[in-house]
Design a protein around this nucleic acid. Structure first.
Lengths: 222, 222
DNA sequence: TTCCGGCTGACGATTCGCTGACAGGCCCGC
DNA sequence: GCGGGCCTGTCAGCGAATCGTCAGCCGGAA
C-alpha cells in the first residue's frame, strides 16, 4: 500500500512517515507543490496526504488540478488552518477527508485506513471473454467493441452464461435462473431466446452441447 | 438524494432539516435509536447523519449493528463529545466522517456532499460528464456551457444520476431516493420526470435501459 | 436412413415507457 | 385576499419492444 505525503515541515513529516511505515504503508514524500502535483498524477498511489500550506504551489490548487485532470486518488487534507470555510473549500475541491492540526497519529491512521478501504470498494464490474464484453453496471454488452442492444431477458441470459463461462449450463438451470418457478418446462423459450441472442451477437459465441446445454468458452489471458 | 437524520434534539433537528432541504436533500428524521436502526437498514438512504447521544439505543451501537449486518450506507457522526479517542472509535466502528458540535451548517453540508460523492466514486463538487456539468454547491446544471433551469425535483433526478453516472439506476431506486417513504409505487411519476428533464437537457443524455432503468453514460478520463 | 433435440420464422398478447393534458398545491406580487 | 405562474403527480392513450408459443425445418448420431 503506497501513499504520498505532501508536507514541507521536516519534523512533522518525519513523525508521520515513521507512523505510517510502522502501520505498514510504503511512503513517498514530496516537499513542494510542483513535485507533489507531478508525482500524484503519474505514480499510482493508494492515497495522498496533502498539507495545504505549501511553497511553490498551493495544496488546494494541486488538488483542483488533479481533479480537473480526472485524477481520482483519495486525498486527505492536513492543515493548521482550522476555520470552517477553509474546510468547506477543501472538501468541495475534491478532498475525501480533512484533518486539522494538531492531530493524534491514531486518528490519521484510522482515517487513512477508512479512505483506502473505501477506494478499494469500487471493483470493476466488467466481464470479458474474447471479443465479448459485458459491463454489469451499465448493463451493456459489446462484441469487438461494437455495442449490442439486448432485451432484458436476453441480457440476463448472456450475463448468466458469462458468469459461468467455460462451463456447460443446462437448459433446466437456465430456466430456473431466468423464469419464475411456475414456468412450464416443456417450452422451447430458452431455445428461442438463445437463437435471438445468437443473431445479435453473431458467430458461435454461444455454443450448443447437444443433449447437455449451452456454453460460452472461456478465453482469457490466464 | 434522500438522507436520514438521527437526532433527538428537536430544535437542532429542525434547523438541520431546514438546511438540508434547502440544499436539495429529501430528509427523513428518526428521534430514537430503535427507529433509526430499522429505517437505516430498510430504506435506501444516500447518507445518514447520526447523533451519538441518543435515547433507547446508542448511536455507536446502531452503527456497529448496521456494519455487522453489511449495511454500507455512508454515515456522518455528529456529537458534542469531541475528544480524539471518541473519534477514532467512531471511525473504526465504520463511520465515514465525523463532525463535532458545535458546527457550521455550511460545513455539515460540505461534508455531506463529499460523503455522497465519495460513495458514488466521484471526487469533486463539480461533476462533469461530457457536455453535462452539475455543480452541487450552486445546485446548477449546464449543458455545453449553457445553464439549464431545473425544478428541485428535476435537479435531484439529474444529481442522483450524475452521482451514479455509468451505472444503470432502476426506477425503484430513483423512487426511493427522490420521494419520502409513503409514496405510491405504481406511479409513472419517474417517467414523467425523466421526460421533462430530457426536454430541457435535450438529446439522449439520459438513456433508457428498457426493463432495467435509466443511465447517464460516464465519459471521462480514467 | 430414422429419430430426436435443437433451430427458426411468424404471430400476437402483453408490457413498457413516452407524451400531452389536466388539476391540485404552493408561493409570490399586488 | 386574490390571481397567476410554477411545480409536480395522475391519468389515458399510443406506439414500440418484448417474449412465449407454435409449427415446421434441419442436422447430427446411431
Amino acid at each position: 500500500m503506497r501513499v504520498l505525503l505532501v508536507e514541507d515541515d521536516d519534523r512533522l513529516a518525519a513523525g508521520v512517515v515513521a507512523a505510517l511505515e510502522a502501520a505498514g504503508f510504503v511512503v513517498d514524500r514530496a516537499r513542494d507543490g510542483q513535485t507533489a502535483w507531478f508525482q500524484g498524477d503519474t505514480e499510482g498511489y493508494a492515497a495522498v496526504i496533502l498539507d495545504l500550506g505549501l511553497p511553490a504551489l498551493d495544496g488546494l490548487s494541486i488538488l483542483r488540478r488533479w481533479r480537473a485532470g480526472g485524477q481520482r486518488v483519495p486525498v486527505l487534507i492536513l492543515t493548521a488552518r482550522g476555520d470552517w470555510h477553509e474546510r468547506v473549500e477543501g472538501i468541495d475541491a475534491g478532498a475525501d477527508d480533512y484533518l486539522p492540526k494538531p492531530f493524534r497519529m491514531e486518528e490519521l491512521l484510522a482515517r487513512l485506513r477508512a479512505l483506502v478501504r473505501r477506494a478499494a470498494g469500487q471493483a470493476s464490474a466488467v466481464l470479458v471473454n474474447g471479443p465479448l464484453v459485458l459491463d454489469t453496471r451499465r448493463m451493456a454488452v459489446s462484441v469487438d467493441g461494437v455495442p449490442i442492444h439486448l432485451s432484458p431477458q436476453e441480457y440476463r441470459l448472456v450475463s448468466y452464461l458469462m458468469q459461468h463461462a467455460g462451463r456447460v449450463v443446462s437448459q433446466l438451470e437456465l430456466t430456473e435462473q431466468l423464469y419464475a418457478q411456475d414456468f412450464e418446462r416443456d417450452s422451447n423459450a430458452i431455445e428461442v431466446l438463445v437463437g435471438r441472442v445468437r443473431r445479435k451477437l453473431g458467430g458461435d459465441l454461444i455454443q450448443t452441447r447437444r443433449g447437455f446445454g449451452y456454453l460460452i468458452e472461456r478465453a482469457d489471458p490466464q
